[in-house]
Design a protein around this nucleic acid. Structure first.
Length: 496
RNA sequence: GCCAAGGUGGCAGAGUUCGGCCGAACGCGUCCGCCUGCAGAGCGGAUCAUCGCCGGUUCAAAUCCGGCCCUUGGCUCCA
């Protein structure tokens, strides 16, 4: 069973064959740290994370690099905001710290490195010089532009002709360019007040002076253009040619198109073998976007739903499709996650119970485990079809529940294999926290003792026929986030 | 206008790469049954889809071909 992926470059599903048999170079286009991350950004992170985890699981050594763009007009636009920072580096550092907090909160596997643009200016300057030397770029008025007419394959990623691409940039920039589709590799000087005005909070004082960091270059002081960073950092930290370059679908043009042009023009080699693009998160018809103001931050979402529900939400849709965010969708995610976790918990409890016998065999459950494993692997290898893979896990959960429901004595071996399968796939590959649901803060053991004490009292009331009192106790526990379930062998409970 | 991605049941959303296992998955919702003092969870069952429209190819199409309609994204900062 081999992995196949949908490559934007060819528009087709292709068998995934990395440059080296056992190593995958993965570059993820990270975000510009000019604001807190929202659920749209997190969707890319989650899918990149699951890809990383799956490749890991399949035995590849994954070298994952994810950039942090800390040089940008929008960051300059926020300088002087109370509590954020006075300079471009301060603002960038502030939001970078929130991004790292969010990534941890989402239980993402760490990338090998999170390179910052501000620390790679020398590499960027080298790249620009190379492009000028090789005749692909030209200096104009202190800025440097990539000449799209010199790169025959320009437009190959987004399937466009150079002539059909409308001109980019401001009037000033256009006047400096030879071809309207040429794009900036280096911008002369600091950021002009006019360039930040549209990003500036109208309640704050407008920025009057040119701002932001500048660096010296052979063409004079200035700032990197907004596409070179990824080329330079990808080649610096990985290689001239990498295996997977992932990003949001909105980056196909111009960002990724320009990355290909500048990288391949500079090295003469293929820049990335597989281009994977994650569909955008929609909210009620529109994409979720900072500029539209219709977003929920990662931090708020984690506080409201918890990491497992948020991850399960993303696992409900294949990465390349668009996904809709809404209250109903989050509730469904909660149900799905609860269902999976309950089945897992039930299987663990059954394994530990005295009804689990080594001599009992349930062929249905024994068959269900390898079936689930095979389905999961097939789904993941089919362009990371996470929803299909989750379906396999949920079906295994149903098989476990059915076994527990219909048998007096449990098949220990089959249950143990089911538990291990869920831990391996739902836990390691999907990054869900099975088995440690109550482990987030507080003195859990005391809490458990107290709950059990309350339940003992409640049982006494039930036996005495005082159901009203018993129901009150249950309601109060529910209000505290403790779900009580009465079964044949007394009550069980779990923390929400 | 140009480029791209989509249009599948009440919702959400797989399946389209390699046509038949799709009489359409998983889940949510609704209804019934089992279980239960009740509830919940679980299990069983039911409900619910002429797979955007029209035409074509084929023994066979959600899946291939052609045309059309609609939605979203990109072409300006954007994951």
């Amino acid at each position: 069973m081999t992995l196949s992926v949908t490559n934007t470059l060819t528009g087709e599903r292709e068998r995934f064959e990395p440059r080296n048999d056992d190593e995958v170079l993965l570059y993820v286009c990270g975000l510009t740290v000019s604001d807190e991350a929202h659920l749209g950004h997190a969707r890319l992170w989650l899918h990149a994370d699951v890809m990383h985890r799956w490749l890991d699981h399949e035995g590849y050594d994954v070298r994952h690099v994810e950039n942090v763009t800390d040089v940008n007009e929008k960051i300059v636009a926020r300088t002087g905001e109370p509590g954020v920072g006075d300079t471009e580096p301060e603002v960038a550092e502030f939001f970078t710290s929130t991004v790292i907090r969010d990534m941890r909160g989402l239980n993402l596997k760490r990338a090998e490195v999170y390179p910052r643009v501000s620390e790679h200016v020398p590499e960027i300057v080298d790249l620009v010089e190379t492009l000028i030397d090789r005749g692909y770029a030209y200096e104009s008025n202190g800025s440097v532009y990539f000449d799209v007419t010199t790169f025959d394959e320009y437009g190959k990623l987004s399937n466009q002709d150079v002539e059909s691409i409308e001109s980019q940039g401001t009037d000033v920039a256009r006047s400096e360019k030879r071809h309207p589709a040429d794009f900036a590799l280096w911008k002369a000087g600091a950021v002009a007040p006019a360039d930040v005005a549209e990003h500036r909070d109208p309640d704050l004082d407008p920025i009057e002076e040119p701002g932001g960091e500048t660096w010296d270059a052979p063409w004079g002081a200035g700032r990197p253009g907004w596409h070179v960073e990824c080329s330079a950092m990808s080649m610096t930290h990985l290689d001239d040619t990498i295996d997977i370059h992932a990003g949001g679908r909105d980056l196909v043009f111009p960002h990724h198109e320009n990355e290909i042009a500048q990288s391949e023009a500079a090295t003469g080699r293929e820049f990335a073998r597989y281009w994977l693009h994650v569909g955008l998160l929609q909210t009620a018809g529109d994409k979720m976007s900072s500029s539209l103001g219709n977003f929920l931050t990662v931090d708020d979402a984690l506080a409201e739903y918890g990491v497992d529900v948020v991850r399960t939400f993303y696992l409900a849709t294949a990465y390349r499709s668009e996904q809709t965010f809404g209250e109903a969708e989050m509730q469904e995610a909660e149900e799905r996650w609860d269902r999976l976790e309950r089945a897992y918990d039930a299987a663990v409890d059954a394994c530990d119970s005295t009804d689990a016998y080594a001599t009992v065999a349930d062929e249905d459950l024994r068959d269900a485990v390898p079936e689930a494993r095979a389905s999961f692997r097939a789904a993941m290898n089919d362009d990371f079809n996470v929803r299909e893979a989750m379906a396999a896990l949920l079906e295994l959960g149903t098989a476990v529940n059915r076994h527990l429901d219909t048998r007096d004595h449990y098949d220990y071996r089959a249950l143990r294999e089911a538990v291990e399968t869920l831990e391996e796939f739902a836990g390691d590959v999907f990054g869900l926290s099975l088995g440690d649901g109550a482990a987030d803060g507080g003195d859990v053991s005391v809490a458990e003792d107290l709950v059990e004490l309350v339940l003992e009292v409640r049982e006494a009331e039930r036996e005495a026929g005082n159901y009203g009192r018993a129901d009150d106790l249950r309601d109060e526990l529910t209000a505290l986030g403790i779900e009580v379930q009465d079964g044949d062998e007394g009550p069980t409970y779990r923390f929400e």
